[in-house]
Design a protein around this nucleic acid. Structure first.
Lengths: 129, 129
DNA sequence: GTTTTATTAAACCATATGGTTGAACAATAT
DNA sequence: ATATTGTTCAACCATATGGTTTAATAAAAC
């Protein structure tokens, strides 16, 4: 069985950079929708909505199934897992933030007590290279 | 104390939709960098790299600190948490996928055994509305 | 058979994007 | 004081984007 095509993560993040497309994904999370159903809530022409659906399709975020003249769309979440994972890499930076800030502040206090010349700002995980 | 500005998630996902900018964020995860350091690995003009840094800044993903003529950049991960959370909403769809597929396949087998007419494809969490 | 519905294609438009080059600005080094 | 370094600005370019309208296509309904 041929492995599924993995779209570039550029396309995934690009697809997510528009509110209309994010809204369409939410709708699909509730269940499959036709193109018309996806377009209905958005104050734009059907052709414009159709273009958005094509962007989602190109990003691999939806798959369509055509039944007669009706195009059914289904959420394909796998590329979202990839994007989620990409962002997960930075989790240490938003969860560890308070610890790091606290440590930096304590180091700063100690430094001031020693009357040492100021040094450059540092990253959470150590000095600049 | 004034609350920090929260950039639109459009801007965050847009910032992430380019490989150069994702690469810059990775570099910043290793430690603060100057604009020149961020630009160095990328085969493009300094002005182009500077534009990318501005996009990251607009998305709230980095903050800069100017020391003389040197601009130091630091990762700001908070907007990534928001984006990560947005994607986390869909976790049930990529983790539950195999369970759902399995259940659908079993339902399909049962339906075939009863010789029922085929029905429309369904979302993981139930029928279409 | 015609009409209706669902949807896309094509052409157009305004704006945005991502790159370039050369100039300008700010600060440091000499 | 001038020269150098670090960086951005401005103008330009080609392409992409996101919307419109109109026409075309495909299939269902009558």
């Amino acid at each position: 069985m041929v492995e599924q095509y993995t779209p570039p993560i550029d396309d995934v993040f690009h697809a997510l950079s528009d509110g209309t497309r994010r809204s369409m994904l939410r709708a699909l999370a509730a269940g499959d929708c036709t193109v018309g159903e996806l377009a209905a809530p958005h104050p734009m022409s059907l052709a414009a909505a159709s273009k958005h659906i094509k962007v989602l399709e190109k990003a691999g975020l939806i798959r369509r199934e055509i039944e007669g003249r009706t195009h059914w769309c289904r959420l394909q979440a796998a590329p979202l897992a990839a994007a989620h994972s990409e962002l997960g890499f930075y989790e240490q930076f938003w969860t560890g933030r308070l610890d790091t800030l606290d440590r930096l502040l304590r180091e700063d206090d100690a430094r001031k007590a020693r009357d040492i010349a100021p040094t450059k700002p540092q990253a959470p995980e150590g000095d600049r290279q």
